[in-house]
Amino acid sequence: MYFLAIGLIYLAVGGDPAGIVALLMASGLGGLIAGFAWHFGRRYGTRVEDLQDSDAPDATGVVGVYPTASLRPIALAFGTTLLVLGVPIGSWMSMIGAAIVASQVLLLVHDTDD
């Protein structure tokens, strides 16, 4: 709401088009986050984490399920770099980068780390 209000004020005082668009776009981005939070709150209601008088035993058990070490993130980062760096250097590099990214995303999706 702040971005929307300030964007409209900026529009009214004769601000530049880029600034007006950026502020209004920020309203959209903020709205995206706010919308997610609203939807989440509506769907799940108040969670135990948000209760004033809740305590650790109120949500207990196994701490969590976490991925073990994986080569995928660093490989994916390397591939992404090649993909973008290929724009100034050469399409051959982008193609290698795209292949690495595609393969790593595929492996990441199917990676169960048993």
Binding site: A56, P57, T60, G61, V62, V65
Partner: peptide, 24 residues
């Protein structure tokens, strides 16, 4: 809150995953 934990020594940890319900 601390006293309410008496007898719950094996149920002190937060942040359950889907497995938590089974553990509980």
């Amino acid at each position: 809150a601390w006293m309410a934990r008496e007898g719950l020594d094996d149920r002190w940890l937060p942040l359950a995953g889907p497995v938590a319900a089974d553990v509980a």
